[in-house]
Computed example of a mutant assay.
Amino acid sequence: MAVSTSTTSPLPLLLLHRGAANPSPASLSFPSSLRASSLRSRAAAAPPAETLSDDGIPAPPEGEGTGIPLPSSIGDDGEQLAPKQKIRIKLRSYWVPLIEDSCKKIIEAAKTTNAKTMGPVPLPTKRRVYCVLNSPHVHKDSRFHFEIRTHQRLIDIMYPTAQTIDSLMQLQLPAGVDVEVKL
């Protein structure tokens, strides 16, 4: 389907550009003159330009039926996907049964207050190996290796309420679990 373009279009083209220093695709940004709020006002004020295809049939407006969202709907979808408030809980322990029990208690406390939970997500286990000489004078080649493994879990609580925070504050977790909470 061919669409004719005019040079007097009320909406500027959205050009995504990469920063020269960071070539990753996650660093895409809009130019400062093309923010969603200014595009919404322009899109509401401008009448739809009707273009004809090769068959003489009017083409749908930009974004309609093509799967491309209009600029006015970009901000609306972002608010639905990312919650405005979430609690991120990171648990660390040397012993796996302790951390699993703690995760179950946290999830049960959040579920009773109708908060949505995501997790527990197992994060990579950190290994710290210590090498100790067996004998400091004679046997330099004989050594002991000691290892400490730190197991980690991540739990996100979406849309917490005051009751959710109160129930999390009243939980009695074991002493061998380190809890880090971020709002």
Rank of each mutant, 00 (worst) to 15 (best):
R149H: 07
I155D: 11
K140R: 14
N114E: 02
R153A: 09
P122L: 01
H139P: 01
V121C: 06
K116N: 14
L123W: 03
T150C: 03
K116L: 08
R128Y: 04
M118C: 05
P120K: 06
I148S: 11
P136S: 06
F144H: 15
N114A: 04
P122I: 00
M158I: 09
F146W: 14
L123I: 00
M118N: 10
S142R: 09
H139A: 03
R128S: 07
T125W: 01
M118V: 13
V129W: 00
L154K: 09
V121A: 05
P120W: 04
L133V: 15
M158E: 10
L123G: 04
V129I: 07
R143G: 07
N134S: 13
H137S: 13
R128H: 12
V132F: 04
N134W: 12
F144T: 11
K140Y: 12
T150V: 04
N134T: 06
E147C: 09
F144Q: 15
T125D: 01
T150A: 00
R128I: 03
P124T: 00
L154H: 09
I155W: 11
C131P: 01
K116D: 09
S142T: 11
D141G: 14
Y130H: 12
R149N: 11
M118T: 06
P124G: 00
K140A: 15
D156K: 08
M158F: 15
K116G: 05
I157V: 09
I155H: 13
G119T: 00
T150W: 00
V132I: 08
R143A: 15
V129A: 07
R149L: 11
R153I: 04
P124Q: 01
G119E: 01
N114L: 02
V121D: 05
A115E: 00
T117M: 02
I148R: 15
H151L: 03
L154D: 13
S135Q: 14
A115G: 02
R128Q: 09
F144V: 06
S135I: 02
F146E: 15
S135C: 11
M158P: 03
S135W: 06
N134Q: 12
V132A: 10
D156E: 10
V129K: 13
R127E: 01
V132C: 10
E147G: 07
A115M: 02
V138R: 15
P124A: 00
T117S: 13
D156W: 09
G119D: 00
T150N: 01
R153Y: 15
N134E: 10
R143N: 15
F146H: 10
R128W: 00
Q152A: 12
S142P: 00
L123Q: 12
T117W: 03
R153C: 08
F146L: 15
H145I: 15
F146T: 08
S142K: 14
V121R: 15
V121L: 13
